[in-house]
Structures are given as structure tokens and as C-alpha cells.
């Protein structure tokens, strides 16, 4: 399968899970009874993180913008997801260089996946990326200095669940790519 088609299917699958399953989690569950504010996990940044390592920065940011604006259309948020996604896409090359500097040339056109990168480095890479995205998103959404602790709390609880789900999805689906290559 050619790469653009593969990534389009990838995009549709991730967005469908995010919009139709995860966006409803908060509605149906009663997580906020424990004293936490209502929150939902976001796994759609995974799509940006799964782009090939050699994707140029400008293309990554444009793809990031469209990912975010799609999410915005379904969540009634004016550009909040889009801005967080563009920031994440902007930071992605720096994060990749930070963690995989020695073998970034070998990786070339491949997808940064859990098994190719090693669990611990990949875990920290995902954590940092997700925290950047969530912090940007909640700062733009809440937008007040007086509630900075509330922003951090929401970033933390939502981020932990997102990271968990992303690692789980990687454990489920990333293995197939190794067999194929």
C-alpha cells in the first residue's frame, strides 16, 4: 500500500476512535465524582507522532493543522485543537532529534514505533509530546492565570490517560509493521 493511502486510513481510524468513543467517555462515566474535573483523553496527537521521521517540518505542521481543525469541527471548539496540534508538529523534529540523535539517519523514512525505538526512550518521547499538546490545549481553552493549578491538574489527569491509551494502542498495532518490513 502506498504511503499516502496508508496514512489516510490511519487518520480516519484514529479520528473515529477519538470522536466516537473517547469523546463520549466523560459523558457515560462518572470519573469526576472522585473530585477530578471532567476530562477526556486525546489520542489523536498519535497521528502526528506516527508520521515518518523524514517528513519535512512544514508538511508536518500543515498535516497537524488539518488534524486539529477536523477535531475542532467535531468538538465545537474554535481552533483550540488546531493550535495545539501545530505546536506539537513544530516541536516534533526537536523531540526526535533529542531522543534518537544517533540513529535518526538510519530511521529515515520509517514510522517512529514502539518496537523500533525501544520502550523507555519511546515512552519518554510520547510523554513529552503529549504533555506539550495537552498543556497548550488546556491553556488556550481555559485561558486564565488565576486557574493555573486547574490547568495543570487537567493536563495531568487527561495526559496520564492519553499516554496509557497511546502506549496500549502501540502495543496492539505496532508489531504488525515489524513483520511487514
Amino acid at each position: 500500500m502506498s504511503t499516502p493511502i496508508k496514512f489516510t486510513l490511519n487518520f480516519i481510524a484514529i479520528m473515529a476512535v477519538q470522536i466516537f468513543v473517547l469523546n463520549d467517555i466523560v459523558i457515560k462515566s462518572s470519573i469526576s465524582i472522585l473530585g477530578f474535573p471532567a476530562f477526556i483523553p486525546f489520542i489523536y496527537p498519535l497521528f502526528i507522532l506516527l508520521l515518518p521521521v523524514s517528513t519535512p517540518n512544514w508538511l508536518g505542521m500543515i498535516i497537524g493543522f488539518f488534524t486539529g481543525i477536523t477535531m475542532d469541527m467535531f468538538c465545537n471548539t474554535p481552533g483550540m485543537h488546531a493550535s495545539a496540534c501545530v505546536l506539537l508538529a513544530y516541536c516534533r523534529p526537536f523531540l526526535l532529534r533529542l531522543f534518537f540523535q544517533q540513529n535518526i539517519k538510519e530511521l529515515g523514512n520509517t514510522i517512529p514505533s514502539l518496537f523500533r525505538m525501544g520502550f523507555s526512550t519511546y515512552f519518554i518521547y510520547i510523554c513529552l509530546a503529549i504533555l506539550i499538546h495537552h498543556l497548550a490545549f488546556y491553556i488556550v481553552q481555559i485561558w486564565s492565570f488565576s486557574q493555573i493549578l486547574f490547568i495543570l491538574l487537567k493536563t495531568l489527569v487527561s495526559g496520564i490517560l492519553s499516554i496509557l491509551l497511546i502506549i496500549l494502542s502501540q502495543l496492539l498495532f505496532a508489531q504488525k509493521e515489524i513483520r511487514r518490513s
Binding site: T77, P78, G79, S83
Partner: peptide
């Protein structure tokens, strides 16, 4: 810029 031009929530006319 989209966020700020639409910051008044009532005017989120196109998204």
C-alpha cells in the same frame, strides 16, 4: 489567530 478572532464564543460562526 483563529482562537483570538473568535474569542467571543457567540460568534463561532464557521466552526
Amino acid at each position: 489567530s483563529i482562537v483570538f478572532s473568535n474569542y467571543s464564543y457567540q460568534q463561532t460562526s464557521y466552526i
